[in-house]
C-alpha cells in the first residue's frame, strides 16, 4: 500500500489483532503517522488542551472566558485530537487550502476515538459552517468533511455570514465583532445536546459564537470537538 500523504510504499499490517478482528488499516505510513502528536495526559477540563501535572484544572484562557458573565457556561467543553505542530500545519495546508479532501481519511480513526471517549451517541453533530462565498471558493467545508468521518449523521443547523478571514484579526476584535452565525431554517433544537465539529480550536471564539446561537434557540448543552487544539 502507498501512504496517503507521502505516497511511499509501506506495510499496513501492524499486528495480528488487525488481521484477526478486521480492524481498519492505517492509510498512513508509520513515519507520517508518527509525526502527528496526540493530545494526552492531563487536560484542561474546559478546552481540552494539555496541562502540566501541577496546574489548576482549568487553564488561564478558559478562566478568562468563565469570568466573563456574557460568555460563562456558553460552551460545555471542547475536546481536540491533535497538537498543532509544524507537521499538522503542513497537513492542514494541503488538506484545507490546497483542497486535498481525501487527506481527512487519515483522521477518521483518531477523531472517532475521541468522539466516543468524550461525547457519544447522545449528542447531535453540527459542523461549523462556512459562508456561501468561502464554500464556493474552497469547494468543500472542512468541518463537514470531519463530521462525515464520525459514525453519526450530522445536521446543517447553522449558517454563516461572510466576513473577513478570521486569522487576520486579534482576539479582542474577534470577540467584539458581530456573531457571524445564524440558524438555518427552523431546526428542532429544543433540549438537544449538541457537539460542534470544527478543524481548529484557537481562541474558542468561533465555537462560542456558534454555541450561543444554538443555546438561544433552546439547545440544552453545546460542546465542541475539533481536530486540532492550537
Amino acid at each position: 500500500m502507498n501512504c496517503l500523504l507521502c505516497h511511499s510504499p509501506y506495510n499496513p499490517i501492524a499486528n495480528w489483532r488487525q488481521l484477526l478482528f478486521l480492524e481498519d488499516f492505517d492509510v498512513l505510513c508509520p513515519r507520517c503517522r508518527g509525526a502527528f502528536q496526540l493530545i494526552d495526559g492531563r487536560l484542561c477540563e474546559m478546552c481540552g488542551r494539555s496541562l502540566e501535572e501541577s496546574a489548576p484544572s482549568i487553564c488561564a484562557d478558559c478562566l478568562d472566558w468563565e469570568e466573563d458573565e456574557r460568555w460563562r457556561g456558553v460552551l460545555a467543553k471542547n475536546r481536540s485530537v491533535y497538537v498543532y505542530n509544524e507537521w499538522m500545519k503542513e497537513v492542514i495546508a494541503l488538506w484545507k487550502f490546497r483542497g486535498d479532501y481525501v487527506v481527512a481519511e487519515a483522521f477518521r480513526q483518531p477523531l472517532t476515538a475521541v468522539f466516543r471517549r468524550d461525547f457519544g451517541s447522545g449528542w447531535q453533530l453540527v459542523p461549523i459552517p462556512l459562508s456561501a462565498e468561502r464554500l464556493h471558493e474552497r469547494g468543500f467545508n472542512q468541518a463537514e468533511a470531519l463530521a462525515r468521518l464520525l459514525p453519526l449523521p450530522s445536521v446543517p443547523w447553522l449558517a454563516r455570514k461572510h466576513s473577513e478571514k478570521q486569522s487576520k484579526k486579534s482576539r479582542r476584535e474577534r470577540l467584539e465583532t458581530d456573531n457571524p452565525f445564524f440558524l438555518s431554517g427552523h431546526p428542532p433544537i429544543n433540549g438537544k445536546r449538541i457537539v460542534l465539529i470544527d478543524d481548529i480550536y484557537t481562541t474558542g471564539v468561533t465555537v462560542r459564537h456558534a454555541a450561543r446561537v444554538l443555546l438561544e434557540a433552546g439547545a440544552a448543552e453545546v460542546g465542541s470537538l475539533t481536530l486540532v487544539r492550537a
Binding site: 494541503l94 490546497r98 483542497g99 486535498d100 479532501y101 481525501v102 464554500l135 464556493h136 474552497r138 469547494g139 468543500f140 467545508n141 468533511a145
Partner: peptide
C-alpha cells in the same frame, strides 16, 4: 480522489498530482 463538491453539487473527482497549481 473525489469529494462532495459544493460548486457543482455532486461528487467531483480531482487530480492529487498537480494540486499545488490549484485543484
Amino acid at each position: 480522489a473525489s469529494f462532495p463538491c459544493a460548486r457543482c453539487g455532486s461528487d467531483c473527482t480531482y487530480c492529487r498530482k498537480c494540486l499545488v497549481m490549484g485543484r
